[in-house]
């Protein structure tokens, strides 16, 4: 049995008003997983992320990173290894040049300056924004700011990267750029958790989906299983991905044979159709 990279056990958290924001969350996350965290607004996704990074301290429950239970002393280790890309770039960017901004995390890790510079350049070229190095963040566009915030986390070399609704407020081109970066990071074996309301994106990108509802995890499994489960979709107020509907309609009308090989994108469907109709 593989050892989970991040193990969350019976986590409870409530904000000042007494209502539980997290109500007994237990989840094991393994290295290299691509996880979509879905659920309506206020279901506890962001609170969970902040707990996982150690910014919020849980009322009950424990978090272990690579088998070590996190306490006050090794909190630093947790923050170093779990990076969050926040939903609003303007709430994350703190420095007044892109270079200082991306270097902020590595500087806090107390790395030598040469290494910080090396990491900054690496992260900036990874995100294709090396030319922005000396630019102040207030002259960048929304999509460019998003790239800077992702470079922030890449420069910290976190094992686990959490994206809090990354596609919100991005135009289609930038959203596509983001998806390419996610694929690239996935190929490098990074563990990723992404909260999103875009079910089509979750369906085509994720290997595993976790559904939050009112501070509880109500489902955890492959996106296909979850999106086929009407009960869960109703409880969490989710829509079905368009590609799933299309495929099931085609099967129902006997237009294609049911191979159980569900296409998640129009390209996949095209491949499937070409395969099935080659000999027809």
């Amino acid at each position: 049995m593989r050892e989970p990279i991040l193990k969350v056990n019976n986590l409870h958290y409530s904000y000042g008003n007494g209502n539980p924001a997290l109500d007994g969350i237990s989840v094991d996350i393994y290295k290299g997983e691509k996880i979509a965290v879905i659920g309506s607004n206020g279901s506890g996704k962001s609170t969970f992320f902040l707990n996982a990074n150690g910014v919020l301290k849980a009322d009950h429950g424990e978090i272990s990173y690579q088998g070590t239970v996190i306490n006050k002393k090794n909190l630093r280790e947790l923050r170093k290894n779990i990076g969050i890309v926040f939903q609003e770039a303007d709430n994350q960017i703190i420095a007044s040049t892109v270079m200082a901004e991306v270097g902020f995390g590595p500087m806090n890790l107390k790395l030598p300056k040469e290494e910080v510079i090396e990491r900054v350049e690496e992260a900036l070229s990874y995100m294709n924004i090396l030319d922005f190095k000396d630019r102040p963040p207030h002259y960048l566009s929304g999509g460019e700011k998003k790239r800077v915030t992702i470079a922030d986390v890449i420069a910290m070399k976190s094992e686990v990267i959490i994206f809090d609704e990354p596609t919100a407020a991005l135009d289609p081109l930038n959203a596509q750029m983001l998806e390419e970066v996610l694929v690239k990071l996935g190929e490098e074996g990074k563990t990723m958790l992404i909260s999103t309301h875009d079910v089509d994106f979750a369906y085509r990108w994720a290997e595993r989906a976790i559904v939050f509802d009112q501070g509880k995890i109500i489902a955890d499994g492959t996106p296909l299983d979850i999106f086929k489960n009407t009960g869960i979709l109703e409880q969490a107020n989710l829509k079905r991905p368009a590609m799933l509907d299309v495929y099931e309609m085609l099967v129902e009308k006997k237009m294609v044979a049911d191979t159980k090989d569900y296409p998640t994108s129009p390209q996949d469907l095209k491949v499937l159709l070409e395969k099935q109709f080659k000999f027809a």
Partner: peptide, 24 residues
């Protein structure tokens, strides 16, 4: 509210009381 959000974001990147920036 923003001050809170920034503090959270800074903590998430290992801020421990010293604001040090990389200078060119």
């Amino acid at each position: 509210k923003k001050a809170n959000a920034y503090y959270t974001a800074m903590e998430a990147r290992g801020y421990e009381g010293d604001l040090i920036f990389l200078e060119d």
